[in-house]
Computed example of a mutant assay.
Amino acid sequence: MTIQLPSADGALRTYEPRTEPLAPAPGTPFTSRTVFSAAHVVADPYADVSPDSPAAVDWDATLAFRRHLWSHGLGVAEAMDTAQRGMGLDWDGAAELVRRSAAEAKAAGGRIACGAGTDQITGGTLAAVRAAYEEQLAVVEEAGAQVILMASRALASAARGPEDYLEVYGHLLRQSAGPVILHWLGPMFDPALEGYWGSSDLDTATDVFLEAVTAHPEKVDGVKISLLDAEREIDLRRRLPDGVRCYTGDDFHYPELIAGDDRGFSHALLGVFDPLGPLAAQAVRVLDTGDVAGFRSLLEPTAGLARHLFQHPTRFYKTGVVLLAWLAGHQSHFTMVGGLQSARSLPHLARAYELADGLGLFHDPKLAEERMKTLLSLYGVNQ
Rank of each mutant, 00 (worst) to 15 (best):
P6N: 05
P6M: 06
A8Q: 11
G10H: 09
G10M: 09
L12V: 04
T19L: 09
P21Y: 06
G27C: 06
T28E: 15
V42G: 01
D48N: 11
S50G: 05
V57D: 02
T62Y: 09
E78M: 13
G93H: 01
A94F: 06
S101G: 15
E104N: 04
G110D: 13
C114H: 06
G117Q: 07
D119R: 13
A127I: 00
A128P: 00
R130N: 09
R130T: 14
E135F: 08
E135W: 02
Q136K: 09
M150H: 11
A159N: 14
E167T: 13
Y169I: 09
I181A: 04
H183V: 08
P191K: 10
G198Q: 10
T204I: 14
T204K: 13
K219Q: 14
I225Y: 14
D229A: 12
A230D: 13
R232S: 03
V244P: 05
C246R: 00
E256T: 13
D262M: 12
G264Q: 04
F265Y: 15
L269D: 10
F273D: 03
A280S: 11
L287G: 03
T289Q: 12
G294W: 05
G294Q: 07
F295D: 01
P301C: 06
G304A: 15
H308M: 03
H312G: 00
R315L: 14
L323P: 00
A328R: 01
T335H: 10
H348A: 11
R351W: 03
D357E: 10
F362K: 03
E370K: 13
K373Y: 00
L376M: 05
S377Q: 10
